[in-house]
């Protein structure tokens, strides 16, 4: 198969994972190395974190990249968790909070931290003992509704609205 880019040389399958999507493209090695160079200029240049435990334990590196901006900005409020004593500075340096309450204590900075390392700031998965199940389902549907309206998928939106009404009905 010919290279998809230059259409001159022979191409081989190249795998790219970008924005969560895997793409396989047939490229020759010349065109391929050019693309890598471009990617290197914009991306982080190395993979993100994983925690299989063997080799990717340097979370601090990742957090340097994630939090670097915040940490150096002069406007960071200095916060302290009244329960475990962890300070916001400590948190930004180590990437670890000290207890469950820290999330409340560091609320003013938490949002931007989460925005940087997570897909969204609303949990839509499982909850303990099923207690929160209805609530979580509602949150999930509301998030879906918002997205459907944004994408102008109005038929879907109507359907989701119906589901929300049903769920609210079972709650009473």
């Amino acid at each position: 198969m010919l290279c998809e880019n230059c259409k001159k040389r022979e191409g081989i399958p190249n795998v790219y994972i970008l924005n969560g999507v895997t793409k396989v493209r047939y490229l020759c090695s010349e065109c391929n190395s050019q693309i890598i160079k471009q990617k290197m200029g914009t991306g982080l240049g190395s993979g993100f974190l994983d925690d299989f435990g063997d080799i990717f334990n340097d979370l601090s590196d990742v957090f340097d990249q994630l939090f670097g901006v915040e940490r150096n900005a002069p406007s960071i409020p200095s916060l302290r968790c009244s329960r475990c004593g962890t300070t916001s500075n400590e948190f930004l340096n180590s990437a670890f909070v000290g207890c469950a309450q820290c999330y409340k204590a560091f609320e003013p900075i938490m949002e931007s931290v989460i925005k940087k390392c997570q897909k969204d700031n609303i949990h839509t998965g499982k909850g303990p003992n099923g207690i929160a199940k209805t609530y979580i389902s509602l949150q999930r549907l509301n998030a879906e509704l918002k997205k459907a309206v944004q994408d102008e998928r109005y038929e879907d939106a109507a359907l989701i609205k119906k589901q929300i009404e049903q769920l609210k009905g079972t709650q009473k």
């Binding site: 081989i12 399958p13 190249n14 795998v15 790219y16 994972i17 970008l18 924005n19 969560g20 895997t22 090695s29 391929n32 693309i35 890598i36 990617k39 290197m40 914009t42 991306g43 982080l44 240049g45 190395s46 993979g47 993100f48 974190l49 994983d50 299989f52 063997d54 080799i55 990717f56 990742v62 990249q65 994630l66 940087k116 390392c117 897909k119």
Partner: peptide, 29 residues
């Protein structure tokens, strides 16, 4: 085969906004 072809290298260049990460298990980089 992707490793021998040297086409797997690309996968490792994922930016922080990517939803998935692919990394070598043993060895460096």
């Amino acid at each position: 085969a992707l490793t021998i072809n040297r086409t797997i290298n690309n996968v490792i260049f994922s930016s922080s906004k990517d939803a998935l990460a692919l990394r070598g298990v043993f060895g460096e980089g």
